[in-house]
Design a protein around this nucleic acid. Structure first.
Lengths: 239, 239
DNA sequence: CGGCTCTTTGACCTTGCTCAATTCGCGTGG
DNA sequence: CCACGCGAATTGAGCAAGGTCAAAGAGCCG
C-alpha cells in the first residue's frame, strides 16, 4: 500500500527523492485507534501531530450544553492536527470515525524541518492552508445552501478527496459516518439529516447502505451542491 | 502609529530585532483601497499578498444564483490573503469594508523568507493557522448557535481581535459593516439580522449606531455567545 | 427638496427542530 | 433456529426559527 500522504502531496507538487525519504520516515511510528475513540483531546498540548494513514477522523467541539459541531472530516493522507505545531493548545478534539491508523510525528522534528527543508515546510504549510480552504467551503455550504445542497456538497467533497488517495472505486467509497455524526458535521438535527438523505435517494442521486456510499448521478449531485473543486487545489505546481 | 502586524505577532511570541526590521520593511509598499471595492478578485493568481494596515476587509464568495457568503472579516494587522502564497489561484474575493490601506508583500520575498528565516516563517504560518481556527469557530456558531448567539459571538470575537491591535476604546470600536454585509457573514437574511440586532439592543447588551459599536454588557454577551477566546491564541510562547 | 442607501416593519410562508414512538439490522446467547 | 437487546434509522405531529416579499421610514448628501 502506498503512502497516502505522499499521494496527497504528489498531486499538488513535485516531490524530490530526499523529500520522499523524509515523508516515508514520518510514517514509521504509528498507532491504532479504535472507532469512536478520541485521537486527540481538547485542552491538551500535544508534542506530536497525527498523520492519518488509514481510516477517517473528525475534528469536533462540544458546547457546554452538549451540542456538538464537527468542523472537519479527515481521510487517509491528511495531517489531522498539523496546525497544532503552531497553536500549542488544542481548541477542539479529534475523533476516530472508523478504526484508524495514525502516524505520530513529533513537533521537534517538524520544527527542525522548517530550518532545513524550506520546500517541504511550504508543503506542510500548504496542508494547513488547504484545511482552511475546506473550512471556508463548509461555511458557504452551511450559510447559503439548503440541507439537501449542503449534504450533496459534503458528498462531492468526500468523493473528490478520497479519489486523490485512491480510496474510491468508480463512484463508490466507504464513509464510516452515521447519521448522528453527519448531522453534527452539517449543523442539522439527526431527524432532518435522515429526511435529507431520503430526499437525495428519492431523486436518484445517491445510494448509502451502512458505510458504503455510491453516487448514482455525479453531474446532478454537483449541480445541486454548487460544487466547484477549485478550492481543493488539485493541480501540481511549484509551491 | 505602530505597526499593527507587529502588535499581532508580539502578542503571540517574542520578536527579535532583525525580525522586526523585516516586518517593518514589509509595510513599505502600500496602496489605498476605497470602501466597497475589491482588494483581490476570485480566480486571479496574485503575485503578492496583502497585509491590512488600516481599515477592515472581508473575504467572500458568490454562488451562481447571487447569494453571497462572507467567510472571514479581517482587521488591521491581518495578512488578508497570505494563504495564497501556497494556493496560487484565489478561490474567493476580498472586499474592503471601509477605506483601507494595504501593504503588498511579494510572494517571491515571502518564499525567500522560508529559506532564510525559519522562525519568521513559522509566525507567518501561524497567521494562516489562526485564520483556520477562526473559520472553525464560525462553523460552530453557524451550525449550533441561534442567530442571537451567532451575532453575539461575532461581536465578542471582533472586540477581542480589535483590542489586540489597540483599536478599541473601553468597550467601543468601529465596525464598518452594514446589516447586509453582516447578514452575508452570518449566513442569515438581512431582515432576520435586523431583528436579531434589535433583540441584542433590547436585552441591553449592545449599542450600534453607524459604524460605532459599544458593548454594554460584556459578560452577558460572552455567555450568550458561548465565547471562549482560547482559539485566538492570545498568549506569547515560542512558536 | 430629491434621490440614494440603509434600516425597519408587517404579513405570510418554508425550512428545519423537538419530542416521542416505531421499526430495522444485526450480533448474542439459549 | 429463534428470542432478545441494542444502536441506528425512520416516522409522525406539532412548533419555532428564520426566509421572502413588499412597503414604509430614516439619514445623509448634493
Amino acid at each position: 500500500m502506498s503512502n497516502p500522504f505522499l499521494l496527497n502531496l504528489q498531486r499538488r507538487d513535485v516531490i524530490t527523492a530526499p523529500e520522499r525519504a523524509i515523508i516515508d520516515d514520518m510514517t514509521q511510528r504509528s498507532r491504532r485507534v479504535e472507532a469512536k475513540r478520541d485521537i486527540v483531546e481538547e485542552g491538551t498540548m500535544p508534542t506530536d501531530s497525527c498523520l492519518l494513514l488509514e481510516g477517517m477522523a473528525a475534528r469536533y467541539s462540544v458546547l457546554d450544553d452538549g451540542r456538538r459541531q464537527i468542523t472537519a472530516v479527515h481521510v487517509a493522507g491528511d495531517f489531522v492536527d498539523l496546525h497544532n505545531l503552531l497553536l500549542a493548545r488544542m481548541d477542539h478534539s479529534v475523533l476516530a470515525l472508523g478504526d484508524c491508523t495514525v502516524a505520530m510525528v513529533s513537533h521537534d522534528f517538524l520544527r527542525s524541518l522548517t530550518t532545513t527543508h524550506p520546500h517541504l515546510t511550504r508543503l506542510l504549510w500548504f496542508c494547513t492552508v488547504l484545511d482552511a480552504a475546506i473550512h471556508r467551503q463548509w461555511l458557504i455550504a452551511s450559510g447559503r445552501l439548503s440541507s439537501v445542497g449542503q449534504v450533496a456538497h459534503f458528498l462531492c467533497e468526500m468523493f473528490t478527496r478520497l479519489s486523490v488517495v485512491e480510496l474510491t472505486e468508480g463512484f463508490s467509497f466507504r464513509l464510516p459516518l452515521n447519521q448522528s455524526e453527519l448531522s453534527d458535521a452539517m449543523g442539522l438535527s439527526v431527524v432532518h439529516v435522515n429526511r435529507t438523505l431520503q430526499e437525495l435517494r428519492k431523486r436518484g442521486l445517491i445510494r448509502w447502505h451502512g458505510d458504503q456510499v455510491e453516487i448514482l448521478d455525479w453531474p446532478g449531485l454537483v449541480a445541486l451542491a454548487h460544487f466547484d473543486p477549485t478550492y481543493l487545489n488539485l493541480e501540481s505546481r511549484p509551491r
